[in-house]
Nucleic acid binder design. Structure first.
Lengths: 108, 108
DNA sequence: CTAAACTATATGCTATAATATATAACATAT
DNA sequence: ATATGTTATATATTATAGCATATAGTTTAG
């Protein structure tokens, strides 16, 4: 049976820049402060700051809470469909505002 | 300044069932055991099991590693686009196989 | 310029993801 | 039925997300 290779070397890296930018932009679009956003999902202001500045990588459920309160959702999609989805987001972009897609740049 | 409300009551719940089903299905599609999958991203078999069975909620970067090695990606998308994306995934579904989209059921 | 609002950083603590190892439970094949 | 491969559970430790509070910077409004 194959053993894992890495020995206690954390895989941890910061959230992708694009994700953090998007979260911040979405928060500002709602006109919320970090404290106001945190209040809505039960996180202290300090934590929102840490996430936006890349100090920590949130758990998946935390990111999902954040996304949803900010009118986003998180989808697991087959790689083959990613380009199509990106163009969809860029189009909506034209008629609205933001560079709305994320998770494009590498996390490592 | 508004204070957060919840006092140390964890927001933690299991990963959405649909996400866990998808991860497992994608792993099996590749013909990988939990140990083999874990080896590829540096996680012990036990951890893969815990994620698939909903014992833990992984960090975002962990889920991203998992998704990508399984030929998926994670997108943050505006809620307004979710229905379109879902139908896109269902269509590809017809010509391929899985109910490919996730994060639809609630986490709380 | 000063005050107020907001954001980033600091410290200590708690909960839990992640690491490591072992083994029980389950499935599959011979 | 037993050996083999696979998955789930158990225990212990370490790393870090998250909680709570305080405060130092930074930005914005008057």
């Amino acid at each position: 049976m194959a053993k894992y290779i890495k020995k206690h070397i954390s895989r941890l890296e910061a959230l992708p820049e694009s994700v953090r930018q998007l979260l911040k932009a979405a928060r500002l679009k709602q006109g919320w402060t970090q404290a106001e956003l945190g209040r809505r999902i039960g996180l202290p202001q300090m934590h929102i700051s840490a996430i936006e500045t890349g100090k920590i990588v949130p758990r998946f459920d935390t990111l999902l809470d954040l996304a949803r309160i900010l009118d986003y959702d998180i989808l697991l999609v087959p790689k083959t469909l990613v380009p199509v989805m990106q163009s969809l987001m860029r189009n909506q972009d034209s008629e609205e505002q933001r560079p709305l897609y994320a998770s494009d740049d590498e996390i490592e």
